[in-house]
Amino acid sequence: MSDAIEIVALGGELEISRKREIRDAFTLPDGARAVLVDLSTVTYADSTALTELLRFCVTAQRDRMPIAVVIRTRQFSRLVQYAGLAGAFAIFEDRDAAVAYLNERVKP
């Protein structure tokens, strides 16, 4: 994986009682050229997590920084669809595919 790709990882239940932690985690790392958001170990998510994820991705897009999000939990995937955000992020079930997507976009 390219050194230019930073990883933001969260796991467990991403819900309202962790709002501050989620918001703090979703901060663009200094010096990064791309970010892998690894949510592969999330077991449940609510709209609090979704809102913070969207905020993070919008900020990254404004800064022209590519982001790939890894989501494996079916509940989380369905939540994204229900919120109408399926096209808002580059979402992958497989981490390697997410890394390949980012590597394509950080090539010199």
């Binding site: 309202i16 449940y44 609510d46 709209s47 609090t48 509940q75 369905r78 939540l79 229900y82």
Partner: peptide
């Protein structure tokens, strides 16, 4: 399965709205 997830998701959203 999905039915279980969907009901808990909807209830979780209603609860989060209420407490927030």
């Amino acid at each position: 399965g999905d039915c279980l997830d969907d009901v808990t998701t909807a209830a979780g959203e209603a609860l989060a709205n209420a407490v927030e």
